[in-house]
Design a protein around this nucleic acid. Structure first.
Lengths: 138, 138
DNA sequence: AGACGAATTGACGTGAACGTAAATGAAACG
DNA sequence: CGTTTCATTTACGTTCACGTCAATTCGTCT
């Protein structure tokens, strides 16, 4: 009977410093994210202890940021990921929200594809010009 | 002999209002971009006149923004596009810079692909749960 | 000439996402 | 027990990309 609150899944918590080193963020950032309810470190007295869940969320937060999502938007997405972990509450609304985000992301990808293609063209030009100049200089 | 300063290429300029309507930006935005040397409208007295070049640049500016590039980064990229239009000055440095940006963009695309895949998995879950709930409610 | 609308120039304000400094508290070390 | 060493809280500061408002000025219409 190892299914109570499940202590098997190495619920080793981390200090704020360990988190900062692991994810390359500042303490300020982690506290800020907590204040915005993106992560929920446990409080032992005054100190914070970051759980596996916090780590998973932070990972997603940082990825979201790399795509230009706002922290508020990321918070919405995080809720979706949580759903997968069991509860499945209020799923319909969240599902819709994610669908929206997914559409945006796909649109963004298409545009990115076009932009990359254009840039590559531009750069072939550049490379040829570069070659010309090199041989002229010789 | 129609090749002097080239008046053939419909160099019709636009007022700030026309620009705003066409690109869905505010006057403030255009003036701001000018102050940051992203565009260079002609001055007739006090009024601005936006050229074809300004329009092309603005188009790229807005696209750059959609990818989360900062205005400063965009200014660098704009210089590259200008190269293609003739001068080809200082090409080597600019080329390198663009190569960097391209790599970043490609990396971003890969990550985006993975994220989309994950989200889609998550959403199949969601859709199934939704279906369960619908039939249970009936 | 007077009035009106459109454009311009400061200059201050704003929201997001933290940075940074000061004061305080807990804790570990010699 | 005193002193570093972290961590925390409070709070003001900062950068980016404009928004907003007031005071002019310019061109135009009557």
């Amino acid at each position: 009977m190892t299914t109570e609150t499940d202590k098997t899944t190495t619920e080793e918590t981390m200090t704020i410093r360990e988190m900062c080193d692991l994810f390359e963020v500042t303490p300020r950032t982690l506290r800020f994210y907590e204040s915005k309810e993106l992560i929920f470190p446990i409080r032992e007295g005054t100190r914070r202890h970051f759980t596996r869940r916090d780590r998973a969320r932070l990972k997603l937060i940082l990825r979201g940021k790399r795509f230009g999502f706002s922290l508020e938007e990321i918070r919405q997405l995080l809720d979706l990921y949580d759903m997968g972990e069991g509860k499945t509450v209020q799923l319909a609304r969240t599902y819709e929200l994610a669908q929206q985000h997914l559409d945006e992301m796909k649109g963004q990808r298409e545009e990115l594809d076009r932009a990359i293609a254009e840039l590559e063209t531009q750069m072939e030009w550049g490379a040829r010009e570069l070659e010309k100049r090199r041989s002229n200089a010789a």
